[in-house]
Nucleic acid binder design. Structure first.
Length: 134
DNA sequence: CTCCTGACTCAGC
DNA sequence: GGCTGAGCCAGGA
């Protein structure tokens, strides 16, 4: 059975934003992700794989996105809008308050976004290992 | 405790 | 060159 197939669900409900339990904030892994994301300079973007690789979990870029899931409830604001998939597509825009919030924020950073995809993504690409120094 | 899903990515067809 | 399948880890039901 495997997966659910490729039918990508676009219209996804806002889901529950409540149910916020700050009990498991010791994940460590999550904090690391948020920290790296917060280190992303303005006008720069990075991919999940880059962060995952920097953390050493390159084999699981998913976890990075998972960490973002909690980024909404973290105290310091996490520029999740600067984190996109390796394609530069705003995959997580649907998880923002509004589907256009991510694009608005990116455009505010002088980053061109077209069709939910960052133009010249490679140019705005910010590698934590390269900038932070492995 | 078990099963599944999930903001990804790579490899295979 | 686009789509399918499988792998990864962690948290929620």
């Amino acid at each position: 059975m495997s997966k659910k197939v490729t039918t990508i669900k676009k219209a996804k409900p806002a889901a529950k934003k409540a149910a916020v339990k700050r009990s498991s904030d010791q994940s460590g892994f999550f904090e690391d992700v948020w920290e790296v994301v917060r280190l992303i300079p303005k006008g720069r973007v990075t991919s999940y794989g880059a962060i995952a690789n920097y953390l050493g979990t390159k084999l699981s870029a998913r976890m990075v996105g998972w960490a973002m899931n909690g980024a909404h409830r973290v105290k310091p604001k996490v520029p999740a809008h600067r984190v996109v998939n390796r394609n530069g597509m705003l995959s997580g825009k649907m998880h923002f308050d509004t589907p256009t919030a991510m694009r608005e924020l990116l455009e505010k950073e002088k980053i061109k976004v077209k069709n939910d995809t960052i133009i010249d993504f490679k140019k705005h690409y910010w590698d934590p290992m390269q900038e932070l120094g492995l």
